[in-house]
Amino acid sequence: MIDFSILTKYSDFYMKGLGNVIEACLIAMAGSFVLGTIIAVFRIAPMRWLNAIGALYVEVIRNIPLLMVVYGFYLLPPVFGMSAVDGFKSGTLGLIVYTASYIAEAVRAGILAVPKGQTEAARASGLTYIQTMRYIVLPQAIRIVIPPIGNQFLNIVKNSAILGVIAGFDLMYYADKISSDTFQYFSPYLFVALLYLVLTIPISFGVKYLERKFSKAR
């Protein structure tokens, strides 16, 4: 039932797919963390219009499917006369924009968990708003938000399979190709599932470990 010879015969394809998945995920993790943090700061900044932009971003992006966000990068640029984006890039960009909305909420919760008194004290002692954020609030918030962000990174790895829908040369894409070449479907897809687990299980354990560690510390 399980044909292991496929794994050796097509190891090049599997490795290429795995490499592309890892690349897309690392870029998406860094990108969504930065963008998510910016949006979170927008949401709590002492400026109404920034709050509104942040809230709009989170509410809109969280309520539409990742596939639509990815399609936004894949289908729309040519409509506006810009050059189009290939499957790998639009998939990765979609992951960044989509995940940022979740990370923004996690970071916001973390920032709000830092007692208000500290912010007021910092402002009173002459720090600007940005300095207060940078040196007082964010370093503390980061610790609180690490587990939920870890969960979002786990989601990035799982969601990266979306690249397979738009020919992004990821593991799903190669599973399709290997299946068509071998006339077998069960084994090629099973091996891809295993490769995803090799990526996701360690992250999942890591997140659980951190959750326990930080909840004990408080």
Partner: peptide
């Protein structure tokens, strides 16, 4: 810990093999 798309493709394309 698996991608949902993988489960969908697996159910539709791989299960007929068994």
């Amino acid at each position: 810990n698996l991608p949902l798309l993988l489960l969908i493709m697996f159910t539709y394309i791989a299960l007929p093999d068994i």
